[in-house]
Nucleic acid binder design. Structure first.
Lengths: 291, 291
DNA sequence: CTTATTGTGTATAATATTTTTCATTGGCGC
DNA sequence: GCGCCAATGAAAAATATTATACACAATAAG
């Protein structure tokens, strides 16, 4: 991974193809043939594959202007990196008028990258499985989180309550949480949010729940909470930002996406519940008519 | 270049992520981060890049079922070969393996667009002003939100409590909120979260607070809550997603960015508070030492 | 709190890779 | 045909990479 060259190796080879000797052309053809993968092996492998000797490979690398074969391969890897990496986050300044160094832009960069990386490593099957699980109205759903993540847990709880019945929010902070375990039955689901600074209480809770045959869905960070040992479904999300704290944005995103999917899935039941809720809101005059 | 495996290395890593140790996870993250290019270097290079030792890399290769590191890398190269030569594979998909129409990708698109649009509209000066305002320890800060946004308000409150003193969380849902107004003095700040389905209570609360000379900071949607009439600083954020509900992701992002900025701004005071908090946590043994 | 277990990095040995050296081959002009 | 010179590969030397051994640290268990 050295300096980035203006020309690709392929261009370089084509340009100097005239100056290449017989054996070198043979080699050049191999490299271009399945570009750039063919150039990924060791010098010995490449030499053997193209039917030339390893010194020939090294000599060509020199001829093309590299200090040696490893440098040429490094250039090839850099190229590949540039090709593979998708341009989703390649945004120009987000908050207009603010310099790149403004914390708003720095933060935005970090959060977008977190989302991109998190999405990349989510298995869609995992997502679909969890959606199906949480859509099953036969299973009670218990939700809990740590000191910070409890707000996310509550967010999930509040929305899920609209979607379906059988929801319980467990306050892991208090000493009363063992009581909640009593209400858990085999087949129930425990949704745990546990992000860095993994809390003892949550691990114990997961252990106990697991012992009672409860299926555990875990939202944790890229390093993984110890709760994962007991969880059947684990979401590993990126949470790092330039701040003294971790970011919950990706976690919230995942929760919202799940909610949207579950809601779609259980629309028949949900529709009725939402309608009823609306009527209740009307009666309590909680909201403005419109605005 | 060995046999082609049924599962990709990425899948293999994700599958056995639970069984991986701390250092191995660190390494796994690096490999997945810029997959598969990050795994192309030498074992030494990979070890250095992920901050672990080379034996750890070799050990993980074994753990994943390969005879050694070179075999794992060979598998990776094979994968790359297969991927590159298949022009159908799209690299810009967010959740790999999920079609464009999968709700996860649709949701991600919407959320990312929301963030871009919201950031474009934010005046950095507004941001900076609010940071300065909330950094002023002479002013008490009152925080409140609606039915859904209350969790975001609580999130803000929890973190701000670490940063500074003089924080109050107002439960707008109960009937007791007028009591809170009694505690507000001229120069205080009221942070209001009010997203679509603007609630009566919040408007009244803002009116009253405004009457007492309280400065109001409002987080609302692109259409604007009526609270804006009384607010000195208003953040208009995009919140629409393909779901029955609005998204709070952008709002949470804004809150976190603010917290990071304020925390940086008041570091002298905050540092002491965080240290004290750590010691309290130690005493209560709330967290695991590390993991 | 102490002891076992597991995880981790440093140092080192084993192995593979890359480069250099140098003898051989083959083309080309005379 | 003969001699010159670039091209090439075999083999060895230099270098880098990978695997192992072992000691220390962290964690879990008693």
């Amino acid at each position: 991974m050295t300096q980035s060259r203006s020309r690709t190796l392929a261009e370089l080879i084509r340009e100097s193809f005239d100056e290449l000797t017989r054996a070198e052309r043979q080699l050049a053809n191999l490299i271009l043939e399945n570009y750039p993968v063919s150039g990924m092996g060791s010098i010995t492998a490449i030499a053997k594959a193209s039917g030339v000797s390893s010194p020939t490979v090294a000599r060509m690398a020199r001829k093309l202007g590299f200090p040696g074969f490893p440098a040429m391969q490094a250039a090839l890897k850099d190229e590949l990196k540039a090709t593979i990496s998708d341009p989703i986050v390649k945004h120009d300044q987000l908050a207009e008028g603010a310099p790149d160094t403004h914390i708003l832009n720095q933060f935005a960069d970090a959060v977008l990258e977190n989302m991109r990386q998190s999405l990349k490593r989510i298995d869609p099957a995992l997502f679909d499985n969890v959606v199906a699980l949480l859509s099953d109205s036969g299973r009670a759903v218990h939700v809990t989180g740590g000191r910070i993540t409890h707000t996310i847990a509550r967010y999930f709880f509040t929305h899920m309550q609209v979607i379906r019945s059988g929801l319980n929010l467990i306050d892991s902070g208090s000493n009363t949480w063992p009581h909640y375990v009593l209400n858990m039955n085999a087949g129930d689901i425990l949704v745990v949010f546990d992000i860095r600074r993994y809390e003892h209480n949550l691990i114990r809770l997961a252990e106990m729940a697991s012992g009672r045959g409860v299926t555990i869905v875990l939202f944790t960070d890229q390093w993984g909470s110890p709760v994962a040992k007991h969880a059947q479904h684990t979401f590993n999300l990126r949470i790092e930002v330039p701040s003294a704290w971790d970011s919950s944005v990706t976690t919230l995103f995942m929760v919202e996406a799940l909610l949207a999917a579950i809601q779609t899935n259980t629309w028949d039941e949900t529709r009725g519940r939402m309608k009823t809720l609306e009527q209740l809101f009307d009666k309590t005059k909680l909201f403005r008519k419109f605005s």
